[in-house]
Design a protein around this nucleic acid. Structure first.
Lengths: 347, 347
DNA sequence: TTGTAGGCGTTATCAC
DNA sequence: GTGATAACGCCTACAA
């Protein structure tokens, strides 16, 4: 019963007594074909239940209308916002997304890159895994001139563009804000220094200290994966410090670590911001729920995703030269909330 | 300079003075081919920079090693966990994920279904949009016997399987728990009743009321999209109620609405759980950050995603009959936290 | 164990 | 405007 062969343009052609070439053209609304036949074709197509075979088409036309997306982890608030933004942009232009995660593992990242290549994605959107030392594994793409756009965790490369925010400036602003609140011993919870987002935040933090004549203290710089657990451990670390060496503020490179650090310190009886002020990064939903609300850096994951995908697609459509722009920097705004308002709390 | 033609199995064949067929076999580790030639082939492949063309292969072999994933929204904690679980399972078995979101819009969902079909995904994983009345639009898949697995927001269909939790029982447990704490006027913040997850939670809630001789009160049943805003509006609604008609507990069908409702009520001076107890659903990260911590239903999005994808893949590989199982129900556990512990709070 | 030949469904290139 | 024909890169009977 079940007819297994696909309905092809040949079936339509036969049905209408015209050539397959004409059907192919008619289906794509090629203006060379008369309005009449075009209508006949589309009608016959729906009535025969025709559905175009994308990869037969891809094989011939050398484009897949598919973008590869490679992220460290799928399940973070920030990343899912980015994906939502990308999906919107892609969908708008008739592109699809094929998505994989590296789980912060370069080897998996490498395999994924090759898979994307084998699937002949038209372009690649990538945010690097924590421990990727270089971008050697992207060579196949560069060699074949398949456009690559980095987002968030970027890496400079002549044949690509990066989309992100100015992490240096953002961290500088946050740190300066804490200093303006009277904080003098500001701890930094940072991420893996192989990634620009974390080195830049670290540098911005140090520069702000320096500009305000505060000493950078090694023991107040912790590097971790910024997970819930890392936040809790940071709290333990702080509590174990001699009273005189305790920080009077914490600037965390993400909200998760900040919030879990706060929770543990609160449980230990410390008052925030009186005893210790806090600032995070990302404007994650939890930053608006924790008490006191967490001062943080707000920037839109959706905007980053949308921008990166749109830029890539425009390039593919030939309306933009990918290499005209090396970096696209989106805005990030300091959102001041109670967790860092030492002066108000005192007053 | 840039040689634009792809490196194909013919290039390898020519290079080694063997036939393309042998190369094709060798590349797939076909045991018919001698170990020696196999090695020669793979060596030549890497040295020539060969990368297999997936869709040329797909065109011929009629399988894409790609699964379509269709979700209402990408950017929720639950959904991104699901995706992470699916990606793990898919990756493990050599499958890829092509992902799209309907943004709760049936029409977009319909278009996406067709795109997935045109891309000839080997199987479809779908969670329905809020306002999908039927699953007429999945017919192409059913007709062609392409397996479909529903997850979370499911829909009964003879030719598919569903993966989710027992929402009815979960809601029953939650409501019973609130009743056991002495609550008598329990409000329910529910979602769109077209979706099983919300009708089942609603039914479980009503059944628990009935079993404990409590009246179901229409005015204590709100239907919304369960967003932050919906939570805040629910609080407004509660505050506007005459004192005698106010609920003494709220069971929300998700944590987001619960938490934003709590925040607004707290801001208005109500005490939780003394004045009004709370329970949510999902065990979202915010439920552990809000004060008091939110009682909720815990179930793993990753497990759901992983199970759904694994099941689908096993079916594709022929090791499972898709229709042997109509529904896979994963466990969900009540996580009791301070927000619902009226008795403790009183004591 | 390997080679030959034809076809998967579409589109590009010429013709007319 | 439309038609013939040859690719695109790979796989798989069948033959050797």
């Amino acid at each position: 019963m079940a007819e297994d062969r696909e309905v092809t343009i040949y079936d339509i052609a036969k049905y209408l007594n015209i050539s397959a070439a004409t059907v192919s053209r008619g289906l794509k609304n090629n203006p060379m074909i008369s309005k009449q036949t075009r209508k006949k074709i589309t009608d016959a197509a729906t009535m025969l239940g025709y559905q175009s075979n994308t990869f037969a088409s891809s094989l011939r036309s050398r484009q897949t209308l598919t973008l590869g997306v490679l992220v460290p982890r799928l399940n973070s608030h920030f990343m899912s916002s980015v994906l939502a933004g990308m999906e919107n942009a892609a969908n708008l232009h008739g592109y699809n997304l094929i998505i994989a995660q590296s789980l912060e593992d370069v080897d998996k990242e490498k395999r994924n890159v090759l898979t994307m290549y084998n699937k002949r994605v038209d372009g690649l959107l990538i945010s690097l895994s924590a421990n990727a030392v270089d971008i050697q594994h992207l060579e196949p793409f560069f060699k074949k001139q398949i456009p690559v756009v980095f987002f968030d965790r970027v890496h400079p490369h002549a044949d690509s563009t990066s989309v992100g925010i100015d992490n240096y400036e953002a961290a500088y602003k946050i740190t300066t804000h804490l200093i303006s609140q009277g904080c003098k011993r500001i701890m930094h919870l940072g991420g893996n220094l192989l990634r620009n987002v974390y080195t830049d935040r670290f540098k911005g933090y140090k520069k702000a200290l320096k500009d305000h004549r505060l000493l950078f203290v090694e023991s107040l710089h912790l590097v971790s994966n910024l997970s819930e657990q890392a936040g809790t451990e940071a709290a333990r670390y702080i509590l174990d410090l001699p009273a005189a060496e305790r920080p009077d503020a914490v600037f965390s490179a993400n909200d998760t670590a900040a919030v879990y650090c706060m929770l543990a310190l609160k449980a230990a009886g410390l008052r925030i911001p009186e005893d210790i002020a806090f600032a995070g990064f990302n404007n994650d939903p939890i930053s608006k729920v924790i008490e006191p609300n967490l001062t943080t850096m707000n920037y839109s994951g959706e905007a980053i995703g949308n921008t990166a995908a749109t830029y890539l697609i425009n390039h593919l459509k030939g309306s933009t030269d990918l290499y005209a722009t090396n970096a696209i920097t989106l805005r990030a705004d300091l959102v001041i909330r109670a967790s860092s308002l030492k002066k108000d709390a005192a007053g």
